[in-house]
Design a protein around this nucleic acid. Sequence first.
RNA 1: GGGCCUGUAGCUCAGUUGGUUAGAGCGCACGCCUGAUAAGCGUGAGGUCAGAGGUUCAACUCCUCUCAGGCCCA
Length: 1221
Amino acid sequence: MERGRRDADRRPHQPVGRQSAHRRERRPARRALSRPVGSVRRRPARAREPRGGAAVRRAARRRLRCRDGPESRNARRVPIPARDRRRRRRHVDRARGSRRHSRWNASAWSFHHHRHVPPRRAGAGDGRAHHRHRQARRAEADAGGARRVGGPVTAIPTTRFEPLPPDRPADDVERELLARWEDEQLFQQTLTGRESAPTFVFFEGPPTANGRPGIHHVFARTIKDLFCRHRAMKGFRVDRKAGWDTHGLPVEIEVEKQLGISGKQQIEALGVAEFNRLCRESVFKYRAEWEQLSARMAYWLDYEHPYVTFSNDYVESVWWALKTMFDKKLLYRGHKILPYCPRCGTALSSHELALGYQDVEDPSVYIALELEEGGRRILVWTTTPWTLVSNTALAVHPELDYVELVRREQDKDQRTLILAESRVRAVLGEDYDSRWAVVRRLRGADLVGLRYKRPLDLLEFPPDTVHEVIVGEEFVSADDGSGVVHMSPAFGADDYAAGLRHNLAFLQPLDARARFPESMPIVGGLFFKDADALLTEELERRGVLFRAGRAVHSYPHCWRCGTPLLYYARTSWFIRTTAVREAMMARNARVDWHPPSVGEGRFGEWLKNNIDWAISRDRYWGTPLPVWICEADAAHVDCVGSYAELAERAGETLPHDFDPHRPNIDRYTWKCREPGCIGTMRRAPEVIDTWFDSGSMSFAQWHYPFENAEKFADQFPADFIAEGVDQTRGWFYSLLAIATALGDALPNNSDKLEASPYKAVVVNDMVLDQQGVKMSKSRGNIVDPWLMFERHGVDAVRLFLIASSNPWLPRAFDEKLLAEQAGRFLRTFKNVYSGIFAQYANFGWAPSPQDPPVSARPVIDRWMISRLAGLERAVDQSLDVYDATAAARAIIEFVDDDLANWYVRLNRARFYDVDGEDNRAAFVTLHEVLVSVCRLLAPFAPFVSDWVHRELTGESVHLAPFVTERADRGDATLDAAMDAIRTLARLGRAVREDIGIKVRQPLARMVCVAPNVREAALAPLIPLLAAELNVKEVEFASSGDALVTLEAKPNFRALGKKFGKKTPLAAQAVGAFTGEQLRQFLHDEPLVVSVDGESHQLGPDDLTIVRRASGSLAVQEDAGFFVALDPALTPELKQEGHARELISRVQRMRKESGFAVSDRIVLSVAGPDEVHVVVEAHGAWIAEEVLAAELVFAGEATQGKDMHAIDLDGITAFVAITRIE
RNA sequence: GGGCCUGUAGCUCAGUUGGUUAGAGCGCACGCCUGAUAAGCGUGAGGUCAGAGGUUCAACUCCUCUCAGGCCCA
């Protein structure tokens, strides 16, 4: 049985047999959805709904009122008109007291009071009421709707607005909605019928579906989804094609793991065909989970037509791009230094490299090499002595300071030693000065060009190369070593680059397994690392070893097998991105980056230093490089740009199930077409970097240019993309580089336009664990998104991720904070809807023409609507400029603060009854606010917003407009006035804390000041203030008031402009004005300050006049606002306070006794004369508040057992309550 | 080693073009309310704005350097 659906648990007003399926049937989605957006749809009339309409209802009510007047001793059957009640509650004034008296007199000592009270929602201990209501409900149904809300009997609520189920976890409710969306094809509906709407183009960065999605994916996807939803709600057509990145090393590694193999040899032993077949299968191992996660978190994406990078169409588009670049001479063959694992026989990607850094102890060797000029030596440091066999040069930093030293001891070696000045102490010791003398100082540049003798001569230098020379290089640092770097171009990226610059000799003796050739002296046949010790000995023998030690440092190892890596020069294919660097920078400058620093800094700086993009990989599972090379002459190269072209070259029709992957593709060969060449063209063995795949998605997802040219022209470039900051050099780069290199080959993309393939980017940073530590499997601190959804619901997770801080800052994911922050907001929102709106509106309110227009509603309603307008504008604008965090925070603040904590709290009484003009106004206002809040909330919390919106309007929030024209209609004056009132209320409460008089105790008078707010604007809000602070009168202090002294506060911003350096003097002068001067200034008399002998007339902008209290009132002030309360208590005030205290205590007793809120009671009070007086003066009010049909003052407490003692400010009263059955 | 980001209350974060009382939520202390109730509300304490210089009449804000954390690249 479904949770929360047992009959016994059903709320009393929930009709038996009412199921969600039934509900769907009643409101078929298509009908509901076909209605004009924004219209309010009334639900179909039910059997019990009134037949005669509102007019009949009102007439009936009037008749009843006549018969049962307020003087009647019979049970009052008519609800107390809400307006009256509110006045009583709110305007705590003398009028109320007198009215109460007359009632009291009329009904003497006995009350028969029957107030309309909506039954509570079923709760624990309320079983009887529950039962009664269900019976009544059936009776009502029998009567065919004759009984109505507001009618002569206890009102029966409808379920027009179903409350959010309090007994079901969010997870459960969200899943139900998901099923409903699925039924309704809701996502489809946001696209259909919008063919002609303006498009908002979004590119989905394809995830690699070979790992489980984590919480950081939820983060990025929330960002993507929410902006797409916002634009869709604004009427754009937002296609969102899903995509899968399916090639590349991560996939291969996953399969290797699965097979328990490692390295190229083992893969080739298995067979490339089989290996790639497994790769293709493996890719979708987690695809289902990704799709489920996306669906569950409400990431709307078209998963029915995804692009898949291994598909034939996709590969063909990528080939087209490569061919286009080849034709533009942007694709070429070159060399690259790569980290290489000699055991696995493969180069490693930078990503793999990062996995394998380990702290190891290695030799730390200083060698002193002789310069050609005799008697001078230069000191060199290395931790890889084995590379010294390949040494061909030394590098110094041209701008670094070096020193040349000589031993002070005459009996020691008198040759000099050169090293970086800043390294002398570290290398030679703090006391070097006692042993070494400085011969001369030189700049690095002075050393450049000098020749030296290499430490080992085990290898011959090739002819026509430069060797044994000192070069100047910027990469040399003086942070460690000697400030002189030994160069072996075969074994280091910096070395290699320098080698190219200086035409240095290239000595690479190692074979593929990193062994020295057998023929080499000393180290012949040794594994490279094993040569260190022997070579160190040899250095010593040759007299060049200066010092040998050991040092712990970080060195890269193969993450698979732990073998130390070496850097190796290898043949590679490149995209000549340096040729389009300027164009890329120009295009990048037009991108709207969030935050800008990623675009300008991280990405922009990197583009400046762009080097050619090495796109080939010596691997198996990837888009094959469509390049064929002649066996006879490697200079003969053919690039293929389509399958048709391949068929044409190969001279055969491609089979139906043609597979462009290895090894199949490698069997296509043809005769070299170069004139006179008889060689065979064979495909270059490499596959391409998977980043080239994903960077091609803009066109390859449409199989452009082979198909969909029109669609693609419509969908390029993207308006918006969003990914993690780690994509800076990944996808952000590959999209830009490829689009720029292709230029005119893509639509809307000529270089003149300087258009980026994406107009706006929102970058998100990492999600860390609650300690701020990066999540990783090995640390075991991974947060499982499914668990979070289950515990808190998707809405809470999404809201928390977005609202907690800007997406481009790393955030600590703290589940406790999530529960607190997002949970609190959602609870408040639900409470306002379920606990206030739905609960009471179900007594008979529904949107109707009777509802007063905004202009005719009470001022607090108008304020609420004005604030709503401001919120709508703010949220919409924030989302327009991709500031989701500001938008979310604005909504949260509005709901918590303005709506729940002010509007609802102050107006609760208006919801207790549906009748009355004011009450209709309150309902329609709250309805309007909730509808709009749902819409604003929809992109952030798509579930709860949809649930509530459907209840409120009958249609899905995701088909509703985001904002209406109301957004332009705020009332700034009213907003400011309410702000002032709220500030005054805050100060008033602080005063009450100070003087220790609780709000329950009424006070006679408050005096207050609100600067810069017109009293005319404040006047209508004063009753709110009086009620909030429970004071009888609110006065505004005028300038002439004796309670007030005036002081001037300087406005530095204005004074600074006028007085410059003399501002402090001017400020001092302003502060010195007397109250009298200021008073006159307020009456338009000029105000003059004298600074440094010069007189200046001041204007109203130059200072703020602050009113301060004088005299004995209790006071609080803040920024020019102040509130003073008169703490004097008259006997009357005290009595009223006691009455309130009494009411409060009785209410608590009711609750403790387990009475339903609608139960009537007999109230007995006993106590001394002071208590008697209170009962006499306020009896009617007390009785009404506590639903006492009878109030008896018993004099002395006689039945001590039943009577509870209550302390009324030092007086003891005794109270007993009895429920009337 | 380079580039970029971050450092504000115990925690998570705001803080406009520099303007003199640096804010919010949570937590904490104290209290209120009891018709949103396994809810709601208030008041208060708590900060050398990482540190040091500089520019300015005025710096959390702009500049330089240092320290700490993070990301990316070497």
